[in-house]
Amino acid sequence: MGGSVRQQQDGRSQTPRGLRTSPTGRVPQWVLDEAVGGRQPSAAWRAWTPAEPPALPARKQRPWAGIGTAVVVVAVLSAAWFLGLLPGVATTDADRTAPSPGVEASDGRLGTPLTPPAAGGTFAFAQLQDDGVTPVAYDPCRPVHYVVRPDNAPYGGEQLITDAVAQMSAVTGLRFIVDGATDEAPDEQRQPFQPDRYGDRWAPVLVTWDTVTEQPDFAADVAGQAGSLAVSVGDGPGVYVTGAVELDAAQFTDILSRPGGQAVARAIVLHEFAHLVGLDHVDDPTQLMYPTTSDVLDFAAGDLAGLSRLGAGACEPSL
């Protein structure tokens, strides 16, 4: 039969010998497709809406908003959860639901966003302020801390994250600080303030390599999901204070085993971090934020223009 895929009598396919396997011992689907002369079909991105977080005492809450993600099959957790301080908020340390105001706030921006390309391009924001125009973004006057849970990481995974963060910082002007490894697990109900674990500050962005058990959506051709949580003081603007990036450990292992897989994996992580800082999908297939698979493996003009806007958000030392 050569390199073809034989069929057993019970109808199940039998994998021929001699095909390449991933580090997990599995034969990736693209290898099987190649063996029979087929091509891997293009898959559409799916949207995913997380469960609503529990209400916090004496605070108002706006609903979560679900959006879709990235370049190979990814979903996005868009955590648009606005909190406003109301009368009667508990002030004792044991009952606090937010850190002391102004932690690490600077008098000015920590970096300068990239000048948007003159050609322009299509972009969209995950969340807008009440004016319907200004995007919700991270505070450019304080650093964005992040931690990485190294469990299940594929070979080269750490470098993918480091490179994506560096490029995100160069484009947005936001300063990212890695706080090292953590044992915190992904959680749809993750609390934005965890003083016992992270001290008197907003919890850092959590980056994890998930198993299908931890994130069942990854069983359905979804390679990752990401999003951020926004808070506001009173009638002030919403500001992202923390977020999460979840990546499918098994799928990244397979992707990285393919010819050209490094570039595809990099594009997915870039797409996810763009969702983290506030970009949404667009209908333009020439942009990295297009919601279906494509040959675009880096930020295009519209992506860059949107990210530049997100790096020019307002400084909010009251948070």
Rank of each mutant, 00 (worst) to 15 (best):
residue 315 C to I: 09
residue 163 D to E: 14
residue 264 V to N: 03
residue 289 M to H: 12
residue 158 E to C: 00
residue 297 L to D: 03
residue 51 A to I: 10
residue 264 V to C: 01
residue 251 Q to R: 14
residue 69 T to P: 13
residue 164 A to Y: 01
residue 77 L to M: 14
residue 264 V to Y: 03
residue 2 G to W: 02
residue 275 H to I: 10
residue 93 D to Y: 02
residue 53 P to K: 05
residue 273 F to S: 06
residue 58 A to D: 13
residue 39 R to C: 01
residue 6 R to A: 14
residue 60 K to L: 13
residue 176 F to Y: 15
residue 28 P to Q: 06
residue 269 V to W: 06
residue 138 Y to K: 00
residue 188 E to T: 13
residue 13 S to Q: 08
residue 97 T to S: 08
residue 300 A to M: 06
residue 252 F to A: 09
residue 256 L to K: 14
residue 252 F to W: 11
residue 284 D to T: 04
residue 71 V to Y: 10
residue 316 E to S: 12
residue 272 E to S: 10
residue 233 V to A: 14
residue 262 Q to V: 15
residue 266 R to W: 03
residue 243 G to A: 08
residue 114 L to A: 12
residue 310 L to A: 05
residue 168 M to Y: 00
residue 287 Q to R: 12
residue 145 H to S: 09
residue 150 P to K: 10
residue 307 L to I: 05
residue 106 S to W: 02
residue 122 T to V: 10
residue 53 P to F: 03
residue 32 L to I: 15
residue 21 T to F: 05
residue 9 Q to C: 00
residue 119 A to S: 15
residue 162 T to R: 14
residue 145 H to R: 15
residue 282 V to W: 00
residue 15 T to C: 10
residue 142 R to D: 05
residue 229 L to P: 00
residue 184 E to K: 06
residue 310 L to T: 08
residue 299 F to E: 00
residue 85 L to Q: 09
residue 85 L to V: 10
residue 133 V to N: 06
residue 228 S to W: 06
residue 171 V to F: 04
residue 114 L to Q: 14
residue 130 D to N: 10
residue 98 A to N: 07
residue 162 T to K: 13
residue 53 P to A: 07
residue 113 P to I: 05
residue 171 V to G: 03
residue 287 Q to P: 03
residue 120 G to V: 07
residue 313 G to V: 07
residue 228 S to T: 11
residue 319 L to K: 02
residue 216 P to L: 11
residue 266 R to G: 05
residue 86 L to H: 03
residue 23 P to H: 09
residue 25 G to W: 04
residue 73 V to C: 05
residue 140 P to F: 07
residue 267 A to R: 02
residue 73 V to D: 12
residue 292 T to A: 13
residue 252 F to T: 11
residue 6 R to G: 00
residue 300 A to S: 13
residue 176 F to A: 02
residue 294 S to T: 15
residue 104 E to L: 13
residue 189 Q to R: 14
residue 43 A to K: 14
residue 53 P to M: 04
residue 212 V to R: 12
residue 134 T to Y: 04
residue 138 Y to D: 02
residue 305 A to L: 07
residue 154 P to R: 07
residue 264 V to D: 11
residue 50 P to H: 04
residue 92 T to F: 00
residue 97 T to D: 13
residue 114 L to I: 02
residue 3 G to N: 12
residue 192 P to M: 00
residue 204 P to A: 10
residue 216 P to F: 09
residue 129 Q to E: 14
residue 119 A to P: 00
residue 124 A to C: 07
residue 116 P to V: 09
residue 77 L to F: 11
residue 174 L to H: 11
residue 59 R to D: 00
residue 49 T to E: 12
residue 34 E to L: 08
residue 235 D to G: 06
residue 270 L to D: 12
residue 314 A to N: 10
residue 186 P to T: 06
residue 275 H to N: 12
residue 203 A to C: 03
residue 73 V to T: 14
residue 293 T to V: 13
residue 232 S to Q: 15
residue 228 S to R: 02
residue 157 G to L: 08
residue 34 E to M: 08
residue 222 V to G: 03
residue 305 A to F: 06
residue 103 V to C: 03
